[in-house]
Write a protein that binds this DNA or RNA. Structure first.
Lengths: 406, 406
DNA sequence: CGTAGAATGTTCTTTGAGAGAACTAAATCC
DNA sequence: GGATTTAGTTCTCTCAAAGAACATTCTACG
């Protein structure tokens, strides 16, 4: 039951039903391909004549294509339809604290090429570096495909209107323009988004074939920070000034450790990778003490995880404590948003099985109902590149989105 | 950018544009009344012919009516349109711990009659009591108006599908059917909702004339519990199993006081009315010690507030501590949801001016950006009956909602 | 084989609402 | 008292949905 915003509404015109039904057809083809026109007619409860007309439109603009006819038990054989993805390319970029990933992919999320380089924190230099890599990638691996756009994922808050990065502490960026700069440098449309929201978008738009594509879920990222991207009614929530989902700085303990944000006892200060490392090293969490220590010991969260997997008691203890706090954090997400499921991304997903009992116990302690406590929680391994998939979704999603109406 | 749910979509038909535009007209009349057809045409950017046709439909079904023609500087005088509200009645019911409120109101939210009685906690008896009062109210005060439905607000979680109250600790209800029972007893459609969501609905649908009707905001209720109703993209968020918005049991301090829910350090255990009372009395918060004490001292939160207003230092100190924790709670809402504004309802709104500096300071400590810290926070006095207004909105809203499409 | 039956896909015709022009109504302004 | 302006109504035109009719292409079965 949505309220119509009388200050900004979209009136329906004679073309509106067609726009809506066209997108429904496109989405049905996307999720059920290969699919025949007759099947579309049955699923949509319209005549086959209508489907022919809608499909013709999608065919002529190249959104879908007609594949082979397939065998049928009786009657005329159907001509199957597919979404055109193989020759539509996307450049996906994931800028992280230490490294930047650039992937050339098709619209379906299939990787064509992947490059990595050390992150350049000076925005202008980064844009130039990216632009030259992108043109090279497209020249060497692009083939006959056309690049439809660039998806850029950054570790920080993004203002969707201006395309500026409002605050990215890991990069030291404050109110930095990269979207428009990269668009100018490459001549391609650029879509920018922060990491947790991008990961949520990936699950919404590039979810597993046949898997559930729920209209409401949350994606929790645990890395140097803790962020949440969440989807309500099939739409990602960005908030009034693009800062929704900052669960990382919710206090668990007002007298707890000092967080890098300056406040005390933040969830992030208990369960981020840095917090786990600090715990493992028996240190206080603070950028002053941690940075030099990490540089000298050359220790990273993946090392702690590897130690835990091979049975190191100290690593296990550190991670188990992290898991307990993560469980509390997840209970906060559950109580606040009541999502149908939660995905958890980050290095910690690689020791999920070992940590799950602790996490579940912490959730059970705090969830208000037994159904809420049983919310499915699905780890996502870093090896599936969730952020890069999010970057792809940024470019691909607008083509599948429902038209804005009313 | 909404994703189309391919498992449950609404196809557009030839009638869809009309349904959409009809609702836009209705909403424009609602928010700008009195308004002329010509003005509607300008606001919607359509021809006056189209408006005539849409308005005729709304007139013939009685949603709107034509008032007087008014003076104009030049040209033919316009005939003004109004939403028909005066003879469409709603029975609004607010069931609370100690008392139950029953209000007869028109569609615009104007009160016609208000009754109060001591809450009967046995569901069947309550339903019978309500039914007899409702028929009497309608007989004596109903006049020529027709009652369009009953809005029922309860202090607990509600399953919208079955209409059952899943859990209402204040009433001792668990999985109790009242919606359908009351509908059977009265022969009227009954809409049921929990208090924070209802209050949010009231602000969305019965917001002040000319005031902002934002598509995203939060409503925080502080009474015996702490709950949040929030709106995203013009739609209230209920969650997958109707338990979204339970911010009251987010921990502020894992070693803090034991909450009535059994966990420790919940926001609610720090900032609910009971917590304030316990603090004022210098007691631990627990139902075992508090209930007899409150009964013997006959002390309620309104007394503490009255003392604070007349300068009682102990009351001021207790409330100031509550305000500090409330500020932290609001910072959680801000960081998680980033709403454009937050309404705060509950008795504490009556000492808002005295507590505001403490609340603002607590928010500033924890909000991540300066714009987020500046989120407008608007207290709502109990004297405006926010819950009863929510009950009215439950009945009135469906008539103004955008049609579900795609 | 040849024909009935069944399923897919295309092409008609019908219908009804949006779009906009033309017209009527009712006021003010020289 | 006619020109002008604004509001509201009534036409006509057009185009997409709806659905019937038709063409196509397969299997099944005598």
């Amino acid at each position: 039951m949505r309220k119509i915003n009388t200050r900004s509404f979209v009136r329906a015109t004679r073309a509106t039903p067609r726009e809506i039904n066209r997108q429904i057809v496109l989405n049905l083809v996307h999720e059920h391909q290969p699919i025949s026109r007759a099947d579309l007619a049955r699923r949509m409860d319209i005549g086959r004549g209508m489907v022919t007309s809608l499909v013709d439109e999608l065919l002529s603009e190249g959104s879908i294509y007609e594949g082979d006819t397939i065998d049928a038990p009786r009657g005329r054989r159907p001509k199957m339809l597919y979404v055109r993805t193989h020759d539509r390319l996307v450049v996906a970029i994931d800028v992280r604290f230490s490294q930047t990933f650039v992937m050339l992919s098709d619209f379906a999320g299939t990787a064509i090429a992947l490059e990595t380089f050390e992150t350049v924190v000076v925005p202008a230099a980064l844009v130039q570096q990216l632009a030259s890599r992108i043109t090279r990638l497209l020249d060497t691996h692009g083939g006959t495909g056309r690049c439809e756009g660039i998806g850029l994922v950054v570790p920080g808050m993004v203002d969707q209107h201006s395309g500026r990065v409002l605050n990215a502490p890991q990069l030291g960026w404050k109110d930095v323009d990269v979207r428009d700069a990269l668009a100018r440098a490459t001549g391609l449309p650029v879509h920018i988004e922060n990491a947790p929201i991008a990961c949520a978008l990936a699950h919404m738009w590039l979810g597993q074939r046949g898997g559930p594509v729920p209209g409401d879920f949350a994606y929790v990222t645990v890395s140097d920070g803790v962020g949440v991207g969440f989807v309500v009614n099939g739409e990602v929530v960005r908030g009034h000034t693009n800062t929704a989902g900052e669960f990382g700085h919710i206090p668990l303990d007002l007298k707890g450790p000092t967080c890098l944000c300056g406040a005390r006892g933040c969830l992030e200060a208990h369960t981020s990778n840095l917090a786990t490392l600090a715990r493992y090293l028996g240190q206080q969490l603070s950028s002053a003490t941690m940075r030099p220590l990490l540089q000298s010991t050359r220790l990273s969260i993946t090392d702690v995880i590897a130690h835990a997997r091979s049975g190191d008691a100290r690593a296990i203890a550190a991670l188990d404590e992290t898991a307990r706090y993560l469980g509390i954090g997840l209970s906060i997400v559950i109580n606040a948003l009541n999502p149908s499921e939660i995905f958890v991304g980050g290095e910690i997903a690689d020791v999920w099985d070992q940590l799950l009992p602790t996490i579940r116990a912490a959730i059970a302690d705090r969830a208000l109902t037994s159904t809420a406590a049983a919310t499915p929680i699905i780890p996502e391994a870093a090896s599936s590149y969730p952020r890069l998939r999010g970057a792809i979704a940024l470019v691909a999603a607008p083509l599948f989105a429902a038209p804005r109406v009313a």
